Simulated scan of single mutants.
Amino acid sequence: MSETVVITGASGGIGRATAREFARHGARIGLLARGRTGLEAAAKEVRELGGQALAVPTDVADHTAVAEAAGAVEKEFGPIDVWVNVAFSSVFAPFTEITPEEFKRVTEVSYLGYANGTREALSRMLPRDRGTIVQVGSALGDRSIPLQSAYCGAKHAVNGFTSSVRTELMHRKSNVRITVVQMPAVNTPQFSWVISRLPRHPQPVPPIYQPEVAARAVVHAAAHPQRKQYYVGASTVATILGNKVAAGLLDRYLARTGYDSQQTDERVRPGRPGNLWEPLDDEDGMARDFGAHGEFDEKASARSPQTWAARHPGSLLAAAAAAGVAGAAVATRRHWS
């Protein structure tokens, strides 16, 4: 039986790729985002891939709008089984160049948007004692970097908030599950649509992964929510573990390299439009679908061996055992030859 899934931030990037992945499993999907052009394109893709779609224009920072969207999805498709929080916005700039209003708005979308979505999901899942919430997190929720103070602060907050909710569910002995998928640098349109005050075009810090890598991890986490966290990409593992053992060293390293590594060589005009306050789908009356991918296809990897291993621990153990047996056989032959 197919599931009913809600995805915030579904018009582009990881949210868009995740909608496609759930559609391949025949899911009924409520697509939430602000931009109508992107939402309509996402809904079309979902239907073409075998799923059902309901596009609901929603600003996740508005808790009333999120509640109304959740109600619309359940009216159309029935009880929500999986809720995936993805929606975010950001500002690329030193903290002192981000206005108080901008910082507040990033926090409302990228942190409180997750709280609003989680609240609505729990209000429906707890009485039924079933359901799964997947938070799309980031390695930057453990290890902050320069030029993204608002976004890093929001992702840190999501981790703390989710841990608190998880322990409350455990206290209730609830069958509702909540898990976080910590992401690496991903080739999404955010680098073209967030506000940037950098002199050059913003970019993800390599290694870069395609959004489909992230989407497969999200769908796997939704099906296996027993783990409290999933790490996508070896770079995420290295970043989080490195921060635990050498945070001071990373501070100095990022102070030296963190500005240049987040910018290409391309100059950008001052005051380029961003999507913090309004979606760019219909900027100047021109409908534009940004899709799942950003501008870095040539630099992005479509595979992550680490993520595959995390999703297939049995296969990894079997391969290790086979390698051990083969090694033992070689050693035995050498001993008797």
Rank of each mutant, 00 (worst) to 15 (best):
Q210H: 13
V60S: 05
V46L: 00
Y151H: 09
A310F: 04
G294N: 08
V109S: 13
C152L: 04
L126H: 02
W277L: 03
A150P: 07
D281M: 06
A223I: 09
F103N: 11
E97A: 11
I133K: 10
D297L: 10
G131Y: 02
V194I: 15
A33T: 03
P273K: 09
H293A: 04
V176G: 04
V219I: 14
W193S: 03
V5I: 12
T179Y: 05
R252A: 14
T257D: 05
R333H: 12
F191G: 02
Y230L: 09
T239V: 13
A41S: 07
G291I: 00
G324T: 13
T96P: 00
V60M: 05
A121C: 07
A115P: 09
A302N: 11
T179W: 02
R256G: 07
S90I: 08
V134G: 09
N85Q: 03
P211S: 05
T236D: 11
A222K: 10
G137I: 03
Q135K: 04
P127I: 11
P204G: 06
R269F: 10
S89R: 15
S196I: 01
D260F: 15
Q229I: 01
A70L: 14
Q226T: 10
G141A: 04
T4C: 10
P127F: 08
R252M: 12
H312L: 08
A93P: 02
A310T: 03
A115N: 14
P206H: 10
V73C: 07
S144I: 03
E45P: 00
G242W: 00
H312I: 12
K155E: 09
A17D: 08
A255D: 11
R36Y: 08
V218F: 14
V106K: 10
Q135V: 04
G137V: 04
G327S: 14
K244S: 02
T307P: 06
T188N: 13
A310R: 12
V158Y: 00
G274S: 07
R200D: 10
H156P: 04
V165T: 00
S144F: 01
T18V: 12
G30F: 13
L316T: 11
V165G: 00
G242R: 05
V73T: 14
D81E: 08
G71W: 14
G30Q: 13
A331F: 13
A217V: 01
T307I: 06
V213S: 07
S89H: 15
D260E: 15
Q229H: 13
Y259A: 12
Q190Y: 03
R177H: 06
E278G: 08
S192C: 01
H335C: 05
I80N: 12
Q210T: 10
P305Q: 01
R200S: 06
L126R: 11
L147Q: 05
R267I: 06
T332G: 12
N243R: 04
A326P: 08
A65F: 09
V158A: 03
W308H: 07
G271P: 01
T96H: 14
R197Q: 10
A65R: 09
T264M: 09
A331E: 05
Y209I: 06
L140I: 02
K299W: 12
V5T: 15
S138L: 09
H171T: 10
A246M: 13
A238D: 10
G9F: 09
A61Y: 07
H156I: 01
L169Y: 07
